[in-house]
């Protein structure tokens, strides 16, 4: 392979032909939630693929918080997100929950409840409840976290399945304001252009 790029010319030749990847040669799926500012709720932003939740946290930071303001993120395995039906129109997703009888012997845990308040937008953290199962957590969300608006989808995540940002990790986002070269405002060339255009005009005249 002869390339204009010296780095490409230095690449080794393949010892074997790659036809397809090994089946399911890919990592796990983790959901990413971002808090843009203090006092703003966490909201769902997307996913990363990772081998474990620690790597998912690092990749989430790289993928979702390079540019925008951010104070904290958390990640969780997609399989740990319990999801209600997705509704539309005036149907509240909470009204579609199946009946559930709590078992008094189950251990109580904290769950984070997320609401989808507008279709097409992201799921936003509505609050925390204590319950023994995700189904019970959703029912408690129905009782305690609604504010009158229809909720189109509910997610419940057991807090112990979440990798939160630790206080000492908050510094991860402290460098953002220093990297001015990533801001459009750092590329001002208006004066240079104006001088050039004026000069061209004079030359033409």
């Amino acid at each position: 392979m002869k390339s204009l790029d010296p780095r490409v010319n230095r690449l080794p030749t393949l010892s074997r032909e790659i036809t397809t990847k090994v089946p399911l040669d890919q990592l796990g799926t983790y959901e990413v939630f971002v808090q843009a500012k203090e006092n703003k709720p966490f909201q769902h932003e997307g996913i990363v693929h990772a081998s474990d939740i620690e790597l998912a946290f690092v990749l989430a930071k790289e993928t979702f918080t390079r540019r925008f303001t951010c104070v904290s993120i958390f990640v969780t395995d997609t399989r740990d997100v319990y999801v209600s039906a997705l509704t539309e129109g005036t149907v509240n997703a909470y009204d579609t929950l199946p009946p559930y009888t709590p078992n008094a012997n189950n251990i109580l845990e904290n769950y984070l409840i997320f609401h989808l308040l507008k279709r097409g937008k992201q799921h936003v953290l509505a609050g925390k409840v204590t319950a023994s199962t995700p189904q019970e957590a959703m029912l408690k969300g129905k009782e305690n976290l609604q504010d009158g608006k229809p909720v189109f989808n509910v997610w419940a995540i057991r807090e112990s399945a979440i990798r939160h940002t630790q206080p000492e990790e908050m510094v991860l986002w402290k460098t953002l304001p220093d990297k001015k070269y990533r801001d459009a405002s750092d590329y001002k060339a208006g004066d240079k252009l104006t001088r050039f255009l004026a000069q061209r005009k004079n030359e033409i005249l």
């Binding site: 399911l24 799926t29 996913i47 474990d52």
Partner: peptide, 13 residues
């Protein structure tokens, strides 16, 4: 990196 506990599943949204 492959870890048996991680699994590929379809993303939610």
């Amino acid at each position: 990196l492959k870890a048996p506990q991680a699994a590929y599943v379809t993303p939610l949204a």
